[in-house]
C-alpha cells in the first residue's frame, strides 16, 4: 500500500509564505480562500512575537489538511463526499458535497474552507494546474496533497517551491522513503496527537 505523507522542518521554515501562494496558484484557489497558510504561532499578527521584550521568540506553523489516518471530517460527512483514497490522502468528491459543513466543525485543524458564494478568481482566468477540478458555491474545499501532481508522480507544489527545502514528501508505508526516515530520526511529531486523528503530516525541528 501507499500512504502519502509529509514532514515539515520547523527549524528551516522561515515563514516566507511561498508554500501558501504556491498552493493558491497550483489549485486555482479563489480570492480570500487559502488551503495552506503559515501561522505565526501564538501571535495575533503575522510575524508577531511572543514573550516580553527583549526576550522574544517567533515560530511558524505551516498548516493545511493533515491527511489524517483517522480523519474526523470523514466520519461526520453524511454523504461520503470526504473519503480516504487509495494513496492515503483525504479527498473531497465535490459532486457529493452538500455544503453541510459538518466536516469543518469536526476538523480540529481548521483546515477547510467553504464557498459561501461563487468563488472569485483574481486574475480572472483559470490559473493553476489544468487537471485540478473547479469548485463551486456551496462546497467545502481543502488541501488535496496536490492529488493531480502526486498522481503524476510529482511532489506537491508546496514541497517543490519551498525555498528552504523544509518539506519532505513521500510514502509513509515505505520505511526507506526519505519522509519515513526523517520522521524516525528527527523525532517528528503530529499536531494535536490527543485528538486521535493520526495526521500523516509531521513536524520536526
Amino acid at each position: 500500500m501507499t500512504k502519502y505523507g509529509m514532514a515539515i522542518n520547523k527549524t528551516r521554515c522561515i515563514g516566507c509564505q511561498t508554500c501558501a501562494y504556491a498552493c493558491k496558484m497550483q489549485n486555482s484557489v479563489a480570492k480570500n480562500v487559502r488551503w495552506n497558510r503559515v501561522l505565526s504561532e501564538g501571535c495575533d499578527v503575522v510575524d508577531g512575537a511572543v514573550g516580553q521584550y527583549p526576550n522574544l521568540s517567533r515560530t511558524y506553523l505551516p498548516l493545511a489538511c493533515q491527511h489524517c489516518e483517522n480523519p474526523a471530517c470523514m466520519k461526520v460527512c453524511p454523504t461520503g463526499a470526504t473519503y480516504k483514497d487509495e494513496m492515503g490522502r483525504v479527498e473531497i468528491d465535490y459532486e457529493k458535497c452538500i455544503g453541510c459543513r459538518m466536516c469543518m466543525a469536526a476538523c480540529p485543524y481548521n483546515a477547510r474552507s467553504f464557498n459561501w458564494e461563487e468563488p472569485v478568481h483574481e486574475p480572472g482566468f483559470a490559473y493553476g494546474d489544468k487537471d485540478v477540478p473547479e469548485r463551486t458555491k456551496g462546497v467545502a474545499e481543502k488541501c488535496t496533497m496536490c492529488k493531480e501532481r502526486t498522481d503524476r508522480g510529482e511532489e506537491p507544489r508546496c514541497v517543490q517551491c519551498c525555498p528552504m527545502g523544509a518539506r519532505v514528501f513521500g510514502d509513509l508505508d515505505d520505511p526507506n522513503s526519505e519522509v519515513s526516515k526523517v520522521i524516525a530520526t528527527r523525532h517528528a511529531s503530529q499536531l494535536l496527537e490527543e485528538q486521535g486523528t493520526h495526521p500523516q503530516v509531521y513536524y520536526f525541528e
Binding site: L39, S40, R101, N110, S113, F114, V120
Partner: peptide
C-alpha cells in the same frame, strides 16, 4: 485574514462569512 486563520476553530463560521462579504465586492 484568511491566511492567519488559526489552528483553533473559534469563529470559523464568522470568519468565512466575512470573506464571503468581501467576495461580493470583487
Amino acid at each position: 485574514s484568511e491566511s492567519q486563520k488559526t489552528l483553533s476553530r473559534r469563529g470559523f463560521l464568522k470568519g468565512t462569512g466575512a470573506a464571503a462579504g468581501a467576495l461580493g465586492l470583487a
